[in-house]
Structure formats: structure tokens, C-alpha cells
């Protein structure tokens, strides 16, 4: 049985983990490779590394880091942040990334999704969508790290990128992100129904029950969290045992 995936997300700045906290079993929790290896041992199904550095100069160090991660971990990982062109993706894949995640660049130029799918295959193209709900607008897509509202209705945009060849959607609800009140089940479920590619729920995880809800109610294929795991408020082995008890297929 195909399992639901649990995905920790690591924010990287200048080659170091942001929000890295001290784990007794890790010498240096700011070292993305050390943290990645620890998560892999914990039973994470995949990892996402998001480069939040600002300049192109700093980005060069990210490619070297991707290579170092690929050398040391034996589960799949996705990298994202600042990807704007086919050449950017080529460098990351050549260094051993399994998938790339694109966000604002796809909004600027939807043709990029198609181009990447053609060049590298849909399986390595994740489109990240940041979305926010307001009563006036409904669910809208936001660009540039969630700072700029776009004209795209979220479900329509998800359908469009799926049609263009995206292999997966990483959906982050800005309303829920950081609240620990649960994932945005309505929009996650709406997108899971609208597209035939896998959907990763992101933003709002606070309890184990929230993961059950994302999988059972919203029919997400995977769920992503960051600080919840980093600060060890929730441990992946405990989460997986809990999900299994709830009748959800997980890899243990």
C-alpha cells in the first residue's frame, strides 16, 4: 500500500538551518546535513530544503550544500527557493536533488512549469502554492513569499499547473501557518479533488490529530511541518505509530 508521507521542512540561510535547535544526538543542529541525517533516521519519508538567502552569490553555496546532502542521506529530498529558470534547476538536479519546488517563478511565467516538465520530467517538478483566504476574495494565490496577492484563484491555479506538467503540489495556507490550529482542510481537500497529482498539506500542524485530519478529511498525500518537528513538540516515530493506529498507511 502506498503510504502517506511525513515531510519535515528545513529553512536554509547561508548554508545553515534557520530555527535549528539543539538535539542531544546531533553535534551541530545548524548543520543541514546533520539534521537531515537525524530526520532520516527518525523515519521522515522525504525532506524539503528551502533556501531563504537573498542574493545570487549566496545561492552558489546552496548548490554545494545540495551535493553534500545528496551524498549523505538515503531518502528523497526537494529543494526550493529562488528558482527562476531551467538552468537553476539543472544545477540542483545535477548536484543530487530529487525534486525542485518552484513558486513565484511559476506565477511570473507559467510556461516554466511546462518547460521543466519537458526537460526533466514531471516527477521532479513540485509547484509550491502559498494561499490566503479572505471573505472578500476567497482563496487566492500569493507570490513573493506570500507578500503579493495575485489574480489567481487557488483551485484554478492548481489545475493550471497540473495541466502544465507539475508532478506534485505543495500547498501552504498562510491563514493557518504558524497557528498550530490544524491544516486548512477545505482548500487542501478542494485541490486534492481538483487535480490528479499528489498534494502536500502545509501550514498549521500542531497535533497528531491534525495530520489524521489532513489525510482522512482533506485526502492529502503528504503533510509537511517545520518548527513542530524542529522543536520536538512532536516526534516522527510517535506520530507514525499514532497514524497507523488511526488506520492510515504509514512507513514504520
Amino acid at each position: 500500500m502506498l503510504t502517506k508521507r511525513i515531510i519535515p521542512c528545513l529553512d536554509i540561510k547561508n548554508g545553515r538551518c534557520v530555527k535549528g535547535v539543539q538535539f542531544e544526538s546531533i553535534r551541530d543542529a545548524g548543520d543541514p546535513v546533520e539534521l537531515a541525517k537525524w530526520y532520516a533516521r527518525q523515519g521522515a519519508d522525504e525532506l524539503v530544503f528551502l533556501d531563504i538567502t537573498a542574493t545570487n552569490e549566496e545561492r552558489k553555496t546552496f548548490a554545494a550544500l545540495v551535493r553534500d546532502i545528496a551524498r549523505h542521506i538515503d531518502i528523497p529530498f526537494t529543494v526550493g527557493g529562488g528558482i527562476g529558470a531551467v538552468a537553476d534547476v539543472e544545477v540542483l538536479l545535477q548536484n543530487g536533488a530529487d525534486k525542485v519546488s518552484i513558486n513565484s517563478a511559476a506565477i511570473r511565467n507559467p510556461g516554466l512549469v511546462e518547460e521543466l516538465a519537458k526537460h526533466f520530467g514531471s516527477q521532479c517538478v513540485t509547484v509550491a502554492i502559498d494561499t490566503r483566504y479572505t471573505a472578500a476574495t476567497g482563496w487566492k494565490v500569493y507570490a513573493r513569499a506570500g507578500t503579493v496577492e495575485t489574480a489567481h484563484a487557488t483551485v484554478d491555479w492548481a489545475r493550471q499547473v497540473a495541466d502544465l506538467g507539475a508532478g506534485e503540489i505543495l500547498l501552504t495556507s498562510m491563514n493557518n501557518d504558524g497557528t498550530k490550529a490544524g491544516f486548512a482542510l477545505d482548500i487542501t481537500g478542494g485541490i486534492a479533488r481538483a487535480v490528479s497529482i499528489p498534494v502536500i498539506a502545509s501550514g498549521g500542524a500542531g497535533t497528531m490529530q491534525h495530520f489524521t485530519d489532513a489525510f482522512q478529511q482533506a485526502n492529502a498525500d503528504a503533510a509537511l511541518a517545520a518548527s513542530l518537528f524542529h522543536f520536538r513538540e512532536l516526534e516522527i516515530p510517535d506520530l507514525k505509530i499514532y497514524l497507523k493506529e488511526q488506520g492510515i498507511a504509514v512507513r514504520i
Partner: peptide, 29 residues
């Protein structure tokens, strides 16, 4: 079901030295 088939799924009915020491129902990506 969703396509691509993406994630961890189980091996069954293994019949080859390639799968020496691999348990039935083992997960692979």
C-alpha cells in the same frame, strides 16, 4: 488514484537474489 505513483510502497512476492535479506512488505521509494 494519484499519478505519478509517488512515495513509499511495499515489495511483495520477491523471487531473486537481488532481494536477499529483504523482508516481504518492505517499503521502497
Amino acid at each position: 488514484l494519484k499519478v505519478p505513483h509517488m512515495g513509499w510502497n511495499q515489495l511483495e512476492n520477491m523471487a531473486s537474489p537481488l532481494f536477499q535479506s529483504i523482508q516481504e512488505q518492505e517499503y521502497v521509494y
